[in-house]
Amino acid sequence: MAPPLFVGDVTLPLQFLDRKQSRTQSHAMLFFSYFKDLVGREVTVELKNDLAIRGTLISVDQYLNIKLENTRAVDQDNFPHMLSVRNCFIRGSVVRYVQLPPEGVDVDLLHDATRREARGG
């Protein structure tokens, strides 16, 4: 019996691409990977409408869309618009900054990853 064409974890078209292209793809993954490792930590996401939301990072995707739990506006007096919201999804494209917890930043690891990806691109 012939083996199936698609086996195991291969579910995405990109996984079939050649090495150079998959390197290009991994190049775009630096911050995606970084934020995935940061899941569970408290971050402050500052948006391009000046709203700043603090919460626990729950998940992130390839577009750097972000899900937070236990959210609150940093300045609740001026931004009471989300008072009844405890969990939220933030579109990556409206993020200006993310304030990172110092214990969640390994600078040596970041330097290595950045150099590795700069070479690959």
């Binding site: 409408n49 709203l51 939301i53 009844s84 919201v85 405890r86 969990n87 939220c88 999804f89 579109r91």
Partner: peptide, 9 residues
């Protein structure tokens, strides 16, 4: 869309 928040009823 900027943000989608779950409303705690």
């Amino acid at each position: 869309i900027s943000v989608v928040g779950e409303v705690d009823e």
